[in-house]
C-alpha cells in the first residue's frame, strides 16, 4: 500500500483524478493495527479498481486534522481530492470497509 505523508499528499490524494482510500493509523492505536492486515488484503483484492493508501499520523498530525480526522482508526475515501466518506470508531469492521470499497469500484 502506498505510504502517504505531508510531502506527497497533494500529488497522490488531493490532485488525483479518481478514488483514493486512505487508512489513517498510528503505532499506539491497537484497533488500527488489528485492522491493518485485513486492509492490506483488501488493497490486493481490489487492486487497480481504486487507489489504496495509508497514512501514519506520526509527523502528519496536522495534515490529518486538516482532513477532519481527529481519531483513529479512520478510513477516508476521497474522490478527486474531495473527502467523500469517513469510516471510524473502535467497532469499525473490515466488512464495513469492504462494502464501502465495493461501492466505489
Amino acid at each position: 500500500m502506498l505510504e502517504i505523508t505531508k510531502e506527497n499528499f497533494d500529488a497522490e490524494v488531493k490532485d488525483f483524478d479518481g478514488i483514493v482510500m486512505v487508512d489513517f493509523w498510528g503505532e499506539t492505536c491497537g484497533r488500527c493495527l488489528e485492522l491493518m492486515p485485513d486492509v492490506v488484503a483488501l488493497s490486493e483484492k481490489y487492486d487497480g479498481k481504486i487507489k489504496f493508501a495509508k497514512l501514519n499520523i506520526k509527523g502528519n498530525r496536522r495534515l490529518a486534522m486538516g482532513q477532519g480526522v481527529m481519531g483513529l482508526p479512520s478510513i477516508v475515501f476521497f474522490d478527486k481530492g474531495e473527502k467523500k466518506e469517513h469510516l471510524s470508531g473502535e467497532e469499525l469492521t473490515i466488512e464495513e470497509i469492504e462494502n464501502t470499497v465495493k461501492a466505489y469500484c
Binding site: G26, T28, C29, G30, R31, C32, I57, K58, R61, A64, M65, G68, V69, M70, G71, L72, P73, S74, H86, S88, G89, E90
Partner: peptide, 18 residues
C-alpha cells in the same frame, strides 16, 4: 463526531489534542 473529536481511546488519539 466519532474520530472527529469524540474518542474512546486516549493512547490512540491523545496526539490529536495537543
Amino acid at each position: 463526531f466519532t474520530s472527529k473529536g469524540v474518542s474512546y481511546c486516549a493512547t490512540c488519539d491523545a496526539d490529536f489534542f495537543e
